[in-house]
Write a protein that binds this DNA or RNA. Sequence first.
DNA 1: GCTATCGGACCTTCAAGGAC
DNA 2: TCCTTGAAGGTCCGATAGCG
Length: 355
Amino acid sequence: MSNDQPKNSGPVSQEHPYPPTMAPYPQPYGASYPPGYPVYYPPPPDANHTDTANGAPPGPPYMIPFAPAPGMMYPYASPPAGQGYQYSQQGGPGSANGLRPKRKQVKMACTNCANACKRCDEARPCERCIKYGIPDTCVDGVRKERQKGIKRGPYKRKGKTSTEPSYGEWQPNGSSQSPPAAPAPPPMHTMPHFPPPEGYYPYFYPPPGFMPPGHEGQPGTEGSPNGNGQAPAMVPYYPVPPPPGYFPHYSPNGHPVAYPPPPNGAPMQTMDPGAANRSSSQSGETDGQEIEEIPPPTTTKKRARAGKNGESKSKKVKVAAAAAPAPASVGPSGGSDQVSEPGASSSGENDGGDV
DNA sequence: GCTATCGGACCTTCAAGGAC
DNA sequence: TCCTTGAAGGTCCGATAGCG
């Protein structure tokens, strides 16, 4: 909880002007940054991101030499140290086209964290156990051995032809004047490790050739964004839902367009999933740049909660915890009831029933 | 407001199956 | 033998309830 990564998931507020105010597309393509390269900014002075009223980055930005998908922004602010996010290569509900940040896990959570379903870390005792004063019970669980001999059906081998979008072929305006294409990025799982300095904020510029919408949401006018005279694909600056504490900004037509706060303190518009959808569809499918639809608030998600004693917990059985019951029996009596101890909670009563 | 609880999405690991 | 697939088993996000 409190020792989880800082919660900045509150409602987007205007009092958090970070990332710093800056032009979304400060220079013509190729002038000062390579296409599709993220620029990382140092973190704001405080965790609440409230101290950058002047909009000045706290430190010099730097660039990372890899090529994300055009227009892609690193969606999370300041991942916890050593717990950074990568982009998920696998889809799934809520992750569109691999743009969702990939959760980073420790190889083995301690038994306390595992039972509390909380983030652990590599250190022993882990940070959470230290916080709760039970470092002595912070031990690795025993990983269950995978079953062998399970027969599996015939595999449906996927086609060898790569279906990944080729960024190198991306031609924003279809003209020969197209900027040099960014090198095609390696597959996500082979993406070179590029940890920015801890807490740095990545900032992705829109893809080369992208034209920010002009007035009334119409395409910009500088240059000819689309050689065939068609309106350019309105690739929003925000292909992914803005991370908590970040600021989506919208053009008059509701498209998310840039970071800088609305002028004159104009009210921040709320996220409009439909807008993203419309943006995507009207642009005629921007070739692998589908806009992730912002999921509706999952307020309807209800859980049948167990009683205080958790007697109806149907949660997965913590067999690993059962294999290491020792710390459980020692811990809670120490007065540390804050941590759901193995044996005191779900796992305990499940121990017998499972096997 | 803070913290514990826990459902379920997400992630890692690795055995089985298939290609070469 | 190596690569790919797919699922088991694990982590932990985030919603929610309870408590002070």
